[in-house]
Nucleic acid binder design. Structure first.
Lengths: 143, 143
DNA sequence: ATAGTATTGTTTGTACACATACATTGAATG
DNA sequence: CATTCAATGTATGTGTACAAACAATACTAT
């Protein structure tokens, strides 16, 4: 028995469900972070810089899973708002070292609680077991 | 004991993991659908039209979970390639009825198998139970 | 050392995603 | 009937996401 087109239900495909889930999570983030005007990606960069400050732009990109081209734009917007600095590595002229400014660090402190709210609201329909199950499975399919 | 910034690990947040997973799924889609030059969203529209042809653009948007503004662009690109038609509803001058063309239908037939491959490869690290678990959980957090 | 290669970052172009503002039409209410 | 309101689609602007082409610097092997 061969598979045919009737087997294919869009709403049952992971990719489709991932897009939907991601869009909903982004919406919750947007509403929760409204006052800060930070995007999820901008916050991800700041939060990662708080974990490991003074990183190469390239390495930072790998840590937050963003393209060099994409990260470049994100960094620029964060620089314009004074949250981040970009300095040349004295040892390697080609490298740029990204670091949090005082302003960025201050802003960030008020954001961690918001970040927790976003995660909590995104997962609110799941019980405790399902919450950690979902995280585990997402990690598994992201390599 | 109050929570502080050290509690917040970016890599443990759903939103971050959802973005990563979605990006990986998109990459797999891109590679698999290389020859067709269809994007995930364009294929989603075609696949949905195969399920329910002759829909209002607005309703189609709700079915594939896209903004009116976003869908408008997707539809335009599908029209340019002759996969889709957009006709005015005679009863409601304001509405546009979207339908698959012969060309679109033909193209689509060869795509279902590719779509299955994408889903399969995206989930390849999971066992059977985990696969359906993930789908269930994603549905739960997408309302 | 020199040549070739890998690393790192920018630029440009296409495609979502969505907010906001706008235009038009159909329906509902007084 | 007229005014208001909801539904539907368009236009524009900002922000990802990524490919491809480019540029410049470090590294490696001969």
């Amino acid at each position: 028995m061969n598979s045919n087109s009737t087997d294919y239900v869009l709403a049952d495909q992971v990719g489709f469900l991932l897009r939907r889930a991601h869009q909903r999570a982004s919406l919750i983030f947007k509403n929760t972070f409204e006052d800060t005007s930070l995007t999820p990606q901008q916050f991800a960069v700041l939060a990662k810089l708080h974990e490991v400050n003074n990183v190469t732009q390239n390495k930072l990109g790998r840590l937050v899973d963003m393209d060099p081209a994409t990260l470049q734009g994100v960094i620029q917007r964060l620089m314009q708002r004074g949250f981040v600095l970009r300095n040349q590595d004295p040892q390697h002229k080609r490298r740029l070292i990204i670091s949090l400014t005082e302003t960025g660090c201050e802003m960030l402190k008020n954001c961690f609680e918001l970040g927790r709210q976003v995660s909590s609201e995104t997962l609110q329909t799941l019980d405790k077991t399902d919450k950690s199950e979902l995280l585990r499975l997402l990690r598994l399919i992201s390599e």
